[in-house]
Design a protein around this nucleic acid. Structure first.
Lengths: 202, 202
DNA sequence: GTCTATAAGCAGATAGAC
DNA sequence: GTCTATCTGCTTATAGAC
């Protein structure tokens, strides 16, 4: 498979494979997913999947790599020029929106993390750590300026991930606990805003 | 397999199977785990596993059922006669201790939840929901008495789960972000205590 | 109770026609 | 580029000896 597909058909088929793969891998995990399922979900025959990608694992790692960019964008977008509390609360809200609107992506990464992240461990120790360190530095500065209450900035970021992603990854448990008639997301938005405002208001 | 095993050997072998199954299922998920792996981890031959349990799935559901009791115990133990803030912070600490000391159990349940909890959905809608409702009622009473700040009690419980379990389930990511020389758990204990004290102090 | 051997089915990947 | 047919290995589960 060429690195730069030329025809419209190739691009479209690769897109369909990624979409089907996201559907299946996020629900079944890497080992649980089968090429037959991805074939059915994407509408391409099984041998055709392996015409576009050399192996099942290649599909999976490609999917992870592509989605990681989207996944880290909100943290990337935190604005050093903005109002500190506003910036943090906006980040929380964007992450919660992503849990609501992209639960498959959230579960895909959760699956990978649970298994020790064998396919993206370099990214964790490299790009991710650097990004978090940069944002932790920014948060520390805001805290020292008295514009946010003092608290460990890296654990703050970790706790935002934990709280927002939980609503996607443990969706079935959240809905069981809240009951069938309640929508978790507007409630979570209010709760998390209050929680972080209480924690961070100087 | 009899419901009430009689000999010491039977009890010991069942215990070894549960231990090996926990090791493998928590790391690989249900579909990813194989009887060969459980056989190696438990020290029993593969046909012998199927002498004690009728199928791979029977091993898995038995494991989930046994561990669920232990897993819910801290919430069960919350004391209606205790000091409200103290009781909540003690619950947070016990859950965090469980993440540190029983990460395999945490990941086992996380795997099951990610897949929509097909093997324990009745428990979620039944026993778990009732237990959470009982504790939410207790928390609400404390809030109305002015002994805790007003906040949605069920989301409070959900957020305790999310934050504490995250340190076990996403261990690899937490350690990548914090760097190799830091121990996440004492730091998390301090951070989470502060967080919930700020949120709940009236 | 525990073993070796094996049945039966499924999965990832390839061959080769069109 | 896409298909049908098929190979090869792995996985759950069973048969039957000891």
């Amino acid at each position: 498979m060429s690195e730069t597909p030329r025809t419209r058909i190739q691009l479209e088929n690769r897109r369909r494979i990624m979409e089907g793969a996201l559907e299946v891998f996020s629900a079944e995990g890497f080992r649980g997913a089968t090429l037959d399922q991805i074939s059915a979900a994407s509408g391409l025959s099984k041998p055709n999947l392996l015409y576009y990608f050399p192996s099942k694992e290649a599909i999976y790692t490609r999917l992870l790599t592509e989605l990681l960019e989207i996944w880290l964008q909100p943290l990337e977008d935190m604005d050093p020029q903005g109002q500190p509390l506003e910036e943090v609360l906006r980040y929380v809200q964007r992450k919660l929106d992503m849990s609501r609107d992209m639960p498959r992506e959230s579960r895909l990464f959760a699956n990978e993390m649970l298994r020790g992240a064998p396919h993206i461990s370099e990214v964790l120790a490299g790009r991710l750590r650097e990004l978090v360190e940069a944002r932790a530095t920014l948060l520390s500065r805001w805290m020292q300026e008295g514009r946010l209450r003092q608290t460990p900035p890296d654990h703050l970021i970790i706790s935002i991930w934990a709280l927002t992603q939980h609503y996607a990854d443990f969706d079935v448990q959240v809905r069981a606990v809240l009951g069938p008639d309640r929508d978790p997301y507007p409630e979570a938005a209010g709760y998390l805003t209050t929680l972080f405002r209480d924690l961070l208001t100087p």
